[in-house]
Design a binder for these strands. Structure first.
Length: 267
DNA sequence: ATGGTGGTACAACCA
């Protein structure tokens, strides 16, 4: 079984790319982030015509997550328990559409779009950190309930956990940029402490291996990217992993997302 | 010059 995650940066703008990609890779499950639409605008036919069931969680033009599967799509869940809400300036806080789950072929798949902290002192940063902390607590509970659970926490984590996960760590440190700060890395590492495993890194060793390249500043041709998209597997699922890859080719050409798909093969 | 883009309620906001 082949499972994958991909921040598409608008599903409508990327519909042809996504369809071509599904046909080319023959993926069984695709966790999607940044659909950037509500249900009314969601391209349901794209998936149905290609043999996939799909579940979507989107409320406006921001964020939005989905799971497409052709190995079953059961017990769909939107948001995780106690998921922190956010409202800019403290008004009208909502639980943003950043997490959706479904059971696909026996695997509990979560498509996650972790909030961007914007800046180290921005109000989005504590939101990001509490969002991750709450998710980790829930995930710990799932494992405590069933140590053999096959769970995939996959998506755009907006964190570069190691120095090699950005093209120039000195640039990030000197400019006090996000994604590499100590609190963000601690929030990511907490999932590893819980027992989850980054199952992609062993098959795609760095340095210089990334999943995201900013559209600006010629970042992609200059190979200046960041590894911020991850598949964290529960122990039982990690044992099944036989391979993983980052589809850097998909970042090429006109009309590409700024993120590359990340794929995991299960035996 | 570590700038250059690209997505979305088309106008600012988001990454």
């Amino acid at each position: 079984m082949l499972i994958a995650t991909w921040n598409v940066n608008s599903l409508r703008a990327r519909a042809d790319r996504v369809e071509d990609w599904l046909r080319r890779t023959d993926a069984d499950v695709l966790a999607i982030q940044e659909t950037k639409c509500k249900d009314d605008n969601f391209p349901w036919e794209l998936f149905e015509m290609n043999g996939y069931e799909v579940a979507h969680f989107g409320v406006n033009q921001w964020n939005g997550v989905a799971i497409a599967s052709r190995v079953g799509l059961d017990d769909v869940e939107r948001t995780f328990a106690d998921q922190p809400a956010f409202g800019k300036g403290g008004k009208d806080p909502i639980q943003e559409p950043r997490a959706i789950a479904a059971t696909c072929g026996g695997v509990r798949v979560w498509s996650l779009y972790v909030p961007n902290g914007r800046a180290r002192e921005d109000e989005h940063m504590p939101y990001k950190l509490s969002w991750l902390d709450t998710l980790n607590r829930q995930a710990a509970g799932w494992l405590a309930e069933n140590p053999d659970a096959q769970i995939a926490l996959m998506g755009d984590w907006n964190i570069a956990p190691q120095d090699d996960d950005v093209w120039d760590i000195d640039y990030f440190v000197e400019n006090e940029l996000t994604h590499v700060s100590e609190p963000e890395r601690a929030a990511f590492d907490a999932f590893l402490d819980t027992g989850f495993v980054d199952v992609v890194r062993p098959h795609t060793p760095g340095p210089g291996v990334y999943t995201y390249w900013d559209y600006t500043k010629l970042r992609f041709p200059k190979r200046e990217g960041m590894r911020i998209d991850f598949v964290l597997a529960s122990p039982a699922l990690a044992e099944r992993v036989t391979g993983a890859s980052i589809d850097r080719e998909e970042r090429k050409g006109k009309g590409a997302s700024d993120h590359a798909p990340v794929l995991v093969e299960l035996g």
